[in-house]
């Protein structure tokens, strides 16, 4: 293996020729690097070119608008966690990101990187999908926008072309009575990879009736599972204990988890149910507080 080329374009324009080169040269986009550097060192990935997108202004900021929240793909999770506004608007998305690794890892890890690493157990994706995130994908021919759930296609694989990267995420700004939440299960209290992760985005009305819901499950299949059945069950209810029990039961049956060093398939099914119940409660409480 020869040495790697490293490029850090300062703008989207500067990235274009590099992306064109990436069509021929095995390349990787470098955001936080917390997965990529480990994979390179282990010989799992051997790119010949690295394109560091952290110097591109569009990838590194965030902005909360009345209708839309824009989140740069390379914003470190520690920066997200330090923003009271992001916590206020998208607490579940922030929770997903600030659960990744240690304080040190959070200083680097980014939502774009977490998503494009395409680990079935990635903590970032479930809440981004539950909160209807869209990805702005940049390539030599300009941008295209796709829903977050269309990025990961299989473990370690994405739908992005070799000459594309995610520039930013866009989320609809939550309405009154709407909030998200993310919970994961790990054996220790920190540092582990999710055995199961569940996100919920819940909208309630003044009467406490759930008017909209989206629930997503991580680490129970090759990609995030969107629990449509659970969401359908919740809408129209007061999210009472019996409904949540039923939601847990449905969630327990979803996905196709594997047995590995982090847990058995059976355990993952069980925990998916428990977390589904718990996370809906948290999201619903938050939603109620936003009325």
């Amino acid at each position: 293996m020869e040495s790697v080329q490293y490029h850090a374009p300062q703008s989207l324009e500067e990235a274009v020729p590099l992306l064109k080169q990436a069509r021929q040269t095995p390349s990787r986009i470098l955001a936080g690097g917390t997965d990529l550097l480990i994979q390179m060192r282990a010989g799992v990935k051997s790119p010949e070119m690295l394109i560091d997108i952290k110097k591109i202004p569009e990838t590194t900021g965030f902005e909360i608008g009345a209708d839309e929240i824009r989140l740069g793909a390379a914003v470190p999770s520690a920066v997200m966690d330090e923003s009271p506004e992001l916590h206020q608007q998208l607490p579940g998305v922030v929770e997903g990101m600030e659960l990744i690794g240690s304080t040190q890892v959070q200083g680097r890890a980014t939502p774009g990187g977490n998503l494009c690493n395409a680990s079935p157990a990635g903590d970032g994706a479930p809440a981004m999908i539950a909160s209807s995130g869209q990805c702005v994908v940049f390539g030599p021919n300009g941008v295209r926008t796709i829903p977050v759930e269309e990025v990961c296609t299989a473990p370690g694989r994405t739908s992005l072309a070799d000459d594309e990267f995610i520039q930013e995420f866009r989320f609809p700004t939550p309405k009154a009575g709407q909030a998200d939440a993310y919970l994961r299960f790990i054996p220790r209290n920190e540092m582990d990879i999710a055995v199961v992760g569940v996100a919920a985005n819940i909208t309630v009305d003044a009467g406490g009736i759930c008017t909209a819901a989206k629930v997503t499950l991580g680490a129970v299949g090759p990609t995030v599972v969107i629990a449509t059945e659970v969401a359908e069950l919740l809408v129209g209810t007061k999210l009472d204990d019996a409904t949540l029990e039923k939601a847990a039961e449905i969630a327990s049956g979803l996905g196709s988890p594997i047995s590995d060093k982090r847990g058995t398939a059976e355990f993952r099914h069980r925990i998916a149910g428990v977390l589904t119940r718990r996370v809906i409660k948290i999201a619903a409480t938050r939603a109620g507080e936003r009325l």
């Binding site: 490293y6 690097g33 480990i38 690295l50 560091d52 952290k54 040190q104 680097r108």
Partner: peptide, 18 residues
């Protein structure tokens, strides 16, 4: 652990060129 522009990071997860 080192501090990079005031941010705590693992230096094993940062490239020297960065």
């Amino acid at each position: 652990s080192v501090s990079l522009d005031g941010r705590l990071v693992c230096s094993c997860l940062v490239l020297g060129v960065e």
